[in-house]
């Protein structure tokens, strides 16, 4: 199979690789970059556990090929804490509000919520429910995740 040389910026670091066109972005991140915080639970775009940011937009990395991410900026859950390891407000909120149990869905939720709050810093509960309805959680019943989203929301922008 023809392989393609690509360069993707992952969490601020350029990653160069020669990959098959059929390699998904999720597998590229997990296997080539060894960033296993991006999780695969369904591999067909339903559960959202593999959500990452591509040029800032929340994307299911199991539905995107690595070659499609060439020359773009990809951010995974490993890339949103501060360089000194301080958790992002969304990460801290999930930890503090019992927004996780087994934690397998958590990275996907964190990436989806990070994108949601950037676009809507003061969401209603219904905004959050609808905005996160593309991510499945089997443990929490979503209540702790909602609490995390409320805590992490920056609130109305200053006028």
């Amino acid at each position: 199979m023809t392989e393609i040389a690509i360069k993707i910026t992952v969490n601020g670091r350029p990653q160069e690789a020669v990959v098959e066109p059929r390699l998904t972005l999720a597998d590229f991140l997990r296997e080539n970059c060894r960033l296993t915080g991006t999780h695969l639970a369904c591999e067909h775009g339903v559960c959202g556990a593999c959500t990452v940011l591509v040029d800032g937009a929340a994307v299911r990395s199991c539905l995107m090929f690595a070659v499609q991410a060439a020359d773009r900026e990809v951010t995974t859950v490993e890339g949103i804490a501060a360089p000194d390891g301080t958790l992002s407000p969304v990460q801290a909120a999930f930890r503090d509000c019992h927004g996780l149990q087994c934690g397998f869905c958590t990275p996907g939720f964190i990436m989806s919520l990070t994108a949601l709050l950037r676009d809507n810093p003061d969401p209603t509960d219904e905004d959050i429910r609808v905005g996160l309805s593309g991510n499945l959680c089997r443990c929490t019943g979503y209540q702790g995740i909602l609490a995390a989203a409320r805590q992490a929301a920056p609130g109305p922008a200053e006028a």
């Binding site: 490993e78 390891g85 503090d96 996780l100 934690g103 958590t106 990275p107 964190i110």
Partner: peptide
């Protein structure tokens, strides 16, 4: 809070 929470939200668990 869960002791495994920090690793689970950081993606390193």
């Amino acid at each position: 809070p869960r002791p495994d929470g920090p690793a689970k939200v950081a993606g390193t668990f």
